[in-house]
């Protein structure tokens, strides 16, 4: 007998959400969705959630189980039982609940819309198919698996504090077009995506990768967009300058120069940015935490330089 502790919400009954517990024997081989259906159909018909395909392809049934987003149809309920006998069910994070586990996806879809989620072809349509090599297909294969379930969006650590962030789903979807060999707007796309709220606001926490029920791996896709943005020389922003400074530092000494990195990231002529760095810089100077001005290289740094040069040639 397992206890399902469910966060209910019914605006027609009371303004605040509340927890309710249901007891259910988990049938053998039952998924979490199977159990949710059992609760609805035999214990409380008002228990509300989204579902459709039950085979992990439509993306309807994403919920938070034990604090983390997943597809209810894709997980064995018995694997989720914690603390002896309880499964905690809550609606997806970073989205407003409408009723019980049903949340408002509008902000999610608005952000998808913002990245222009459709092919903007390079060339006029030929008579037959545009050619695309298997290797080019592979570049966009992973991001194509995204089913827009919202699990990544739910658990994103940045979205928790900043709802202007486009979020992992929109940015991963953007990669699908940025790296599609048939798309002709690469530069325009990465320029937009490099603006505040875009790729450089990602904090690398990999919650999106962890929660994604498909091989989409949003964080890895975001990094790919960053690489393209740098290749396209869209560098007038802190994130890009940071990556460039970091690279320069390793290339010349094999390790990060923590003195030049912050300065080059905000930009030598960015007076405000430099001014903002002053308090923490002075603080650290006072405590003796500033690294020596004469930046030492690692042993055998020439090997590192050589690797950079050889890679450049390829």
């Amino acid at each position: 007998m397992a206890t399902f502790r469910i966060k209910r919400y019914n605006p027609e009954k009371q303004p605040e959400p509340y927890y309710e517990e249901f007891q259910l024997d988990i049938p053998q081989g039952a998924t979490l969705l199977d159990c949710m259906n059992q609760i609805k159909w035999t214990l409380d018909g008002s228990f509300t959630y989204r579902m459709s395909c039950r085979s992990a392809i439509c993306g309807s049934c994403a919920v938070k189980a034990n604090g983390h987003a997943l597809l209810a149809c894709q997980r064995q309920a018995s694997h989720l039982v914690k603390n002896g006998d309880t499964i905690v069910l809550e609606p997806l994070g970073n989205m407003k609940p409408i009723k019980d586990l049903v949340v408002d996806f509008k902000p999610f879809w608005d952000k998808i819309d913002k990245i222009k989620p459709y092919l903007q072809p390079k060339t006029r349509a030929p008579e037959k198919e545009r050619l695309q090599s298997p290797e080019q297909f592979k570049r966009i294969d992973d991001s194509s698996t995204c089913i827009m379930c919202g699990s990544c969006y739910s658990d994103c650590n940045v979205l928790e504090v900043n709802d202007k962030f486009l979020g992992p789903a929109a940015l991963a979807k953007a990669q699908r077009f940025v790296e599609d060999s048939r798309d002709g707007k690469t530069h325009e796309r990465v320029k937009e995506l490099s603006k505040p709220g875009g790729i450089w606001d990602c904090t690398h926490c990999a919650e999106c990768v962890e929660r994604c029920p498909k091989p989409a791996r949003p964080f890895d896709r975001i990094k790919e967009v960053m690489t393209v943005a740098l290749e396209e020389r869209v560098t007038n922003n802190t994130g890009a300058r940071h990556a460039i400074s970091f690279t320069k530092s390793i290339k010349s000494s094999g390790r990060v120069n923590e003195n030049t990195l912050p300065v080059e990231s905000v930009g030598y002529f960015n007076v405000k940015g430099l001014f903002d760095l002053l308090p923490v810089g002075l603080r650290m100077l006072f405590k003796g935490k500033i690294p020596p001005i004469l930046h030492k290289s690692i042993d055998d740094v020439d090997d590192v330089k050589r690797i950079f040069m050889e890679a450049d040639k390829e």
């Binding site: 198919e129 695309q132 090599s133 297909f137 699908r176």
Partner: peptide
């Protein structure tokens, strides 16, 4: 099929780039 591909559909490809 060609129209779907023109819409941007991500098809698996042959070695010479066709659908």
């Amino acid at each position: 099929i060609y129209e779907l591909e023109h819409f941007g559909c991500v098809f698996s490809r042959t070695p010479d780039g066709k659908i």
